[in-house]
Design a protein around this nucleic acid. Sequence first.
DNA 1: TCAGTAGTTCGACGAGCATCGTACTACGAA
DNA 2: TTCGTAGTACGATGCTCGTCGAACTACTGA
Lengths: 103, 103
Amino acid sequence: MATKVLPQPGRDEIRVEAVLQALGEPVRLTIVRALADNPAGVCCGEIELPVTASTRAHHLKILREAGVLSTHTDGTRRISILRREDLEALYPGLLTGILSAKQ
Amino acid sequence: MATKVLPQPGRDEIRVEAVLQALGEPVRLTIVRALADNPAGVCCGEIELPVTASTRAHHLKILREAGVLSTHTDGTRRISILRREDLEALYPGLLTGILSAKQ
DNA sequence: TCAGTAGTTCGACGAGCATCGTACTACGAA
DNA sequence: TTCGTAGTACGATGCTCGTCGAACTACTGA
C-alpha cells in the first residue's frame, strides 16, 4: 500500500493572505475544526458538511493549496491532517486563537 | 470638538468568520498592519494604498463591521484604531500570529 | 474481471465582492 | 458665507467564488 502525499506548498511558500482567505469560509472552518479534533487525520468523507462531494473536494483543495492541511492517500481514501507545526512556526498563536473561538 | 465613535459590533457580536474574511484581503491586511504599527490610531488617508478613496472607505467599513477596528471622528478626519484588546480576548494569539508573518 | 466505493475534475451558473467615478455630507479656515 | 478638504454613499461593472451535476479516475473485494 504505497501511500502518496498530494502536492502542497512548502513551508516557505505559504502566504498569510491565502491562509486567512481559506479559513474565512464557514465550510472550510468546519473542516479545520474537525481536523484539529483529530490529530491523527480524518478521511474527508467522514466530516459532516452541508455540501455535495464535489464541493467538499473543492474546499479541501483550497485548504491544501493554502498550506493549511496535508493530504495523503490510503487506498481509495484520502486522509487529511492539519499542518499544525508549519502554521505554528509561521504564525505562532494564529491557529489556537481561531480554534478558541466559541463556535 | 465632539468626537463620535462610528457604529461597530460589540465584543460579543464579533464572529470569527467575518474577522478572517476581513483579514484575508491584501488591501485590508495592509491597513491592519499600519494600524498595528500605530497604537494611537491612524487617519485612514495617511495609509498608502493602491486604491481610490472610495475603495479605501469600503475596506475600512468592512473591517469596522467585522470588529477589527474602531473609528472615531476628529473634525473632518476619522481616526481608526485596531481593536487589539477585543480580538486578543476573543482569539488569543490570532493577531500576533498574523502580524508576525513576514510580509 | 467486474462491480462498487471514494474522491476528483470539468463546465456551468448565480451570488457576492473589489473596484471605480460621481455625487454628497461634514467640518474648518478665510 | 464661501471655499477647500476629508471622507462616505451610491450605482455600475467585471471578476472571483461557492455550488452543483455529470463524467471520470483509482482502488478494493468478490
